[in-house]
Design a binder for these strands. Structure first.
Lengths: 213, 213, 213, 213
DNA sequence: GATGAATGAGATTTCATTCAT
DNA sequence: GATGAATGAAATCTCATTCAT
């Protein structure tokens, strides 16, 4: 099925905002990339900023939704964290443009919108904090600075969007698995997740991600 | 000694490019922040892009120089990596604005300048790659995907510039030490670096960093 | 039929470039003269320099085309030169602004564009050189310094654009006829062109000029 | 004797105004060409426009003075015109930059200054008109449109500044002599000026020109 | 639904000129 | 005499957005 014009606009914006930045992307660039006139753009979007905010909200919503679904009912903190890491990496590797926009263009939002976006991100990050706290409480994890470690984890995983290429040698699953391993090491996980458990986790998360949206 | 106007311009640029992005920062913003008229700005800089490039080059030069100095003659790969991580974290935590500009605004450079900046960055990253490769060869490290792990490490450490605040509870040394620990865990380091060795390393790197430039 | 906005812009540019020079004419002057805002100007032109280049090219194209048509198949060098002089004078007297721009603003062009414009002018002047050479070979003309005489002729004829006014007592045809006479004298023409032949020539050239473009 | 700074400024201005136009020449261009700072320029000139006006006035003064001296007491209109043409050509060929500035940059003057410059030029041209009128009255010349012929003559002779190069094959004297011949032909001069008389004329005019200023 | 035309505001950069040192 | 520093005004050009068709 061919893309709707609205989708083409959205994609153009994601691509250009990611590569040139919000302020570096002109309305005419968007129009050209979307294949319509700049006046027509305004049938499919509000202001340029609303377009940006929409992209961010959608991307974060999806991540948040996916993360909730992937952790819901998972009691073992190691597994919960594995799911969070895998989903995050999957998201950032398979949609690097969107996620880079979310990470890099917050400063371009108006104060009110920024608050809403940051709130979403905070909510998402609280899932990570909860998993880590649980793990520490249950002595599944050992780290002297949990807050620092959490931020280190998140930055490490988000960084995937800045370098991963689907055309490279590494498949998404291997990538996600490797990152899950790194994360557990960072957290001083006692007892590894077995290869089979990791495989299962990746399968679950992959399905969740595919079904979200 | 009071700042020279040129320094004030440089600082204004670093601050604003970091918080609003290169394209989000107008020449008037720069002038206002530096406390001069926008015409006067042009006594102290070439174009806005050259100002950006100068900031990036200086920052990368300093990092590269520091890293070379901090690793020169250090044979143990674990120690070498510890030095690299500590220096990187120190740099990103103590000068978050500069480093964020380097990390986020490459897209705003013209092609020719971008090439030169990226070459500097590649040269810097090769120091990390060398340390990791040495460690693997000597079985001091164990990781299935060295390249991925290296990128994960770098993103994790650079991320410090995005959240660390000197006004928070965590001192620079503890921060750097914690990250060094995380890094060794990620690399599957066999045998820890002793607390004393870590202390020594932090002291050395701290001195190097202070003396660079 | 009313003028299109594009034509109004072109005319404004011709008028102002001719009277104030390219660098003496601001984008605001152009906009005001054309009756639109300075931002709207950019719907109808590329850069200011491209506007200038377009004017020059069009003017020279017309002159070159007309000169070719007016000399094609005319074997007698005296007559050929008469046609060239008459066309040149007609062009410069009836469109003094365009031709002055062509003559005076070459220095404002970028190097690449200048080359193209100068090539056109050289091609045009070669028609004069050919006619004069033919005349000398056939002993219809006698001049010790043909190249100098050619340049003197061209400058004399182009000068018309600097002083002729359609509101003065002298009609275009008499003007052109007088200049043809001056030219033949300068070339030491043996045997005059008869009044009737001159009349015919003027009629032909006038038609060519009217039909060109 | 080395040039004074004031002379260097004057020369820089002449050179640049001639090649790039008044409005195309910046104060910094002038400073660079003169080898001093742009602030120092203002020790040696008033405003940029006064500099231009000074150049024009001086150039026209010299021409006017020379023409008066070269025609004073010369009764034969043919000879008088020969002197005028020779001086004009000499002036334009030996100082092409100044004369081009005079011819092309009048539009850059303020109204009041322009009036004064144009008055000088008119006075100069009246010498030509007088010589031509005398010649017609004495039947030494024959032309149907004296005013037109005068303008044609002047434009032809001024044009020399646009193409003549001292590095070319043609000496100044031959050039001036050739133009004198062209002028007499254009005016339908009855009886040529003898080669000896022409030689004398060129010698006289050359001396006058050398001594003026 | 689509777009050419339009524009006020603002972008970066240069202008001619002044002045304190 | 010389100049670095400074600047208001203006340069060219682009911006995001609207609207009539």
């Amino acid at each position: 099925m061919a893309l709707t014009t609205e989708q083409r606009v959205r994609r153009a914006a994601v691509k250009l905002f990611a590569s040139k930045g919000f302020h570096g992307t002109g309305i005419r660039d968007l129009a050209q990339e979307a294949g319509i006139s700049s006046a027509s753009l305004y049938h499919y979007m509000g202001t340029k900023e609303e377009l940006l905010a929409g992209i961010m909200r959608e991307c974060l919503d999806r991540l948040l939704l996916g993360a909730r679904e992937a952790t819901d009912g998972v009691d073992d903190p190691r597994l919960r964290l594995t799911h969070l890491v895998a989903l995050h990496v999957l998201a950032h590797a398979s949609r690097p443009a969107e996620t880079r926009v979310v990470d890099n263009e917050v400063h371009a939002l108006s104060a009110a919108t920024r608050r809403r976006i940051v709130a979403l991100r905070d909510e998402y990050e609280s899932l990570w904090a909860d998993a880590i706290d649980d793990g520490l409480r249950q002595r599944a994890f050992a780290t002297a600075e949990p807050a620092v470690t959490r931020l280190a984890l998140l930055e490490m995983c988000s960084g995937v969007a800045r370098w991963y290429s689907a055309r490279g040698p590494l498949g998404l699953d291997r990538l996600a698995g490797h990152y899950a391993g790194l994360a557990l090491r960072m957290l001083g996980s006692t007892g590894d997740v077995s290869p089979k458990a990791l495989d299962d986790a990746l399968r679950v998360v992959s399905t969740v991600w595919r079904n979200t949206r």
